[in-house]
Amino acid sequence: MTEPLSVPPSVWRNPWHFIAFGFGSGTLPKAPGTWGSLVALPFIPLWQMLPDWGYWLMLGITMLFGFWLCGKVAEDLRVHDHEGIVWDEMVGMWITLWLVPEGWGWLLAGFLMFRLFDILKPWPISWIDRHVHGGVGIMLDDVLAGVFAWLAMQVLVWGWVNGLAAGLGF
């Protein structure tokens, strides 16, 4: 097991580092990716107020921004993928919950689903995590974990809606 990396003081002085570290959540000593994923949740009700295409556009912008941001901060810190950089987890969570109904139950299900895929890293996520570097590499494994979790969430949503409709006699 590797030692956790220390928290760079620049997180509290440099706005790019602060954002990349999930507004400070990536500085927590245990499971920074989980904390970053939790910090993403309060944004979901705001994103859900957008039209579907607006949410999709927000995902594209935050992902492209993340390629740059994560690469810049990793380069500044001279660490390939500092565990405290959690912007990638935040975007992965936002992907997971696109087109998912509103409500805390759905947020919890999405959180658990994303963490499962982010931690287990099934193929091709594990391959990308090992072979793609820089800001794109930092982001892409979590983007893919978000896509896998999104697909699983859509199956849950579809099953819930169809099961509910069947239960009501529709």
Rank of each mutant, 00 (worst) to 15 (best):
Phe67Ala: 07
Leu151Lys: 13
Glu83Gly: 12
Pro122Leu: 10
Phe67Leu: 06
Gly105Ala: 06
Trp150Ile: 08
Gly137Gln: 09
Val91Ser: 03
Asp141Gln: 12
Asp141Cys: 13
Asp76Lys: 09
Met153Arg: 13
Leu116His: 15
Glu89Thr: 09
Val79Cys: 01
Leu156Thr: 12
Asp118Gly: 04
Ser126Asp: 09
Val143Met: 05
Leu69Asp: 10
His133Val: 12
Lys121Ala: 04
Gly103Gln: 07
Leu116Ala: 14
Val155Asn: 06
Gly71His: 05
Gly60Pro: 02
Gly110Cys: 02
Leu156Ile: 12
Trp98Val: 12
Ala149Phe: 11
Trp94Tyr: 00
Gly103Tyr: 15
Phe148Arg: 10
Val147Ser: 11
Trp68Tyr: 15
Lys72Ser: 12
Val100Ser: 10
His80Lys: 02
Gly71Trp: 00
His131Ile: 13
His82Val: 02
Lys121His: 03
Glu89Lys: 02
Arg115His: 14
Trp106Cys: 09
Val91Tyr: 08
Leu59Tyr: 01
Thr62Phe: 02
Lys72Leu: 11
Ala74Asn: 09
Phe67Lys: 07
Ala74Val: 05
Ala149Arg: 01
Ala145Cys: 08
Phe111Glu: 05
Asp141Phe: 14
Met139Val: 11
Gln154Arg: 07
Asp142Trp: 07
Asp118Arg: 11
Leu108Ile: 11
His131Glu: 06
Val155Gly: 08
Val91Ile: 06
Trp98Glu: 04
Trp94Pro: 04
His133Thr: 13
Trp87Leu: 00
Leu151Glu: 10
Leu140Ala: 11
Trp56Asn: 03
Arg78Cys: 05
Val155Lys: 08
Ala145Lys: 05
